[in-house]
Design a protein around this nucleic acid. Structure first.
Lengths: 225, 225
DNA sequence: GTCTATAATGAGATAGAC
DNA sequence: GTCTATCTCATTATAGAC
């Protein structure tokens, strides 16, 4: 369904691919249209011709893969729900595994895409584009998480989902912390190992939320602060 | 020990503060030296006079608060260890709570600082500066986490720490996901509630790592993929 | 659709007076 | 330490030929 090594045929795709690569490496403002068209092997004017503005090019970069990613996640979730009542781990798996699969086997573009997403900042540009493309699917997964802890209020499922997204996105950010801090014993690029650790990690975390909600501040009070 | 609302007295500090604010909002490349000196209320040339290059200004912005943060974290950790054998929750508390306290009560600069850290990308600029300022303290916390799970290899403590850092940093990033996805029921700016949920969340997650290491890929195989 | 050329602006950094 | 003025180069975007 995805065509990893296929070289871009149209100049439009070439620009899109180059923009994705460079945005992921240096951020939106760290890259000029000249850099992008240079890497794409097309002339400067092609960027404006196809996309008008740099802002719009960025938007298209995010949008292009968002749909495929959402589709994969929802397909996994629906398959799960048809098979019966899923466990928390299964729901997290349905959310995280497509990210892993596409990032590692979907071609270099997908890896760049995941690193790019991890650079989202608090500014309007990011807030709008992420909300527009990901919130709807996010709500489906929050509902599925909530179904695994039906006695808890939905707000706790939201909190668990948001914490999980932060953890996952950071794991795909391309920071080499894991390698560095382990002195090379662990490999930050072994995303499979990270995902396999992360899913039970997050599931266990989410399961603590109902009780930590009740005894709120326990850790804080224990330190007398 | 920190003086939140004190206005900067020197032009050097004014530039540093303005740079911190603007970098946090728009990222390194999203801000010009003119923007910074403009907000600081000083002339353009003062930036070069005090800091030489923009790169160096950025470095100083990160460095300035890194020391205070590391000191607070280490003090909390040492106090803990003097009091006996700490629980995993206590170690995480010692790591996260200074971040929370400074971010919410250390003045606007600290809040900006935490948002800025969350924008770290995979590029050299970030990797170098974060490694230089934070790796040493990170190793102390990894050791403390490892002491809570002594039968597991240290690599698992590293993995738990790295996942935890990602979760924490994302929680302080200023993305308003929690508010948006909960329809306003939860408040993304209530960092206290987030920290109080996060600490047991992460502790539970770390405790799963030894077992998920042994039965690696269980969730994956269950889905037959 | 693709190119050259250029317009219009903004960037980082510095020289040199005070 | 602080200022004005400026150098030099890169930036986004567009006009208009082919």
């Amino acid at each position: 369904m995805t065509h990893p090594p296929e070289p871009p045929v149209t100049s439009r795709q070439a620009v899109l691919d180059a923009a994705e690569t460079l945005f992921a490496e240096h951020g939106y403002d760290g890259v000029s249209i000249r850099d992008i068209t240079g890497l794409a092997g097309v002339r400067l004017a092609m960027a404006s011709y196809h996309f008008g503005s740099k802002e719009n090019l960025f938007d298209q970069v995010i949008a292009r893969r968002a749909e495929a990613l959402n589709r994969a996640r929802r397909a996994a979730l629906e398959a799960l729900q048809r098979a019966g009542k899923p466990e928390l781990e299964d729901v997290l798996h349905a959310f995280i595994w497509p990210y892993f699969t596409l990032s590692t086997q979907g071609g270099a573009g997908w890896a760049s895409y995941c690193r790019l997403i991890a650079q989202s900042g608090p500014g309007d540009r990011w807030r709008d584009v992420l909300s527009r493309h990901f919130d709807e699917t996010a709500q489906m997964f929050i509902t599925a998480i909530h179904a695994c802890m039906p006695r808890a209020p939905r707000a706790l499922a939201v909190r668990g989902f948001v914490l999980s997204v932060g953890t996952m996105v950071s794991a795909f950010s391309g920071n080499r912390r894991l390698t560095r801090l382990s002195g090379g014993e662990l490999d930050a690029e072994d995303l499979r190992a990270t995902c396999e650790a992360m899913i039970p990690f997050l599931a266990a975390g989410i399961r603590t939320l109902p009780s930590s909600g009740r005894k709120a501040g326990a850790a804080a009070r224990r330190k007398g602060k």
